[in-house]
Computed example of a mutant assay.
Amino acid sequence: MTTTVSEQVGTAAGAVRAANHTAMSAALTASETSAVVGAVTDLAHRLPQLLEHIARPLRTADPVDYRDDRGSDPIHALRQARAALNDARDVFEALAGHLDRAHYHLGHLSPSDPEDSTVNTTKYLWRVEEVAELLGICRSRVFGLMNVGELASVKIGSSRRVPDQAVRDYVARLSEGAA
Rank of each mutant, 00 (worst) to 15 (best):
M1D: 11
T4A: 02
V5M: 02
V9D: 00
T11D: 13
A12M: 11
A12G: 10
A12C: 06
A13K: 10
A18Y: 09
A19W: 05
A26S: 12
L28M: 12
L28F: 14
E32K: 04
T41C: 12
L43E: 08
P48F: 00
Q49V: 14
L51P: 02
L51N: 05
A55I: 07
A55H: 09
A55R: 11
R59S: 05
T60S: 10
T60V: 09
D62H: 07
P63W: 13
D65Q: 08
D69N: 06
R70N: 09
I75K: 11
H76W: 11
H76C: 13
L78D: 09
R82M: 09
N86F: 15
D90S: 10
F92V: 02
A94P: 01
L95I: 02
A96P: 10
H98C: 08
H98W: 10
R101A: 14
G107M: 01
L109C: 01
D113L: 06
T118P: 00
V119F: 04
N120T: 05
Y124R: 07
Y124V: 00
W126F: 00
E129G: 08
G136K: 09
R141T: 11
G144S: 06
M146K: 07
V148L: 12
E150F: 07
I156H: 14
S158P: 13
R161T: 00
D164H: 01
D164V: 02
D164R: 02
Q165M: 00
V167C: 02
Y170D: 08
V171F: 05
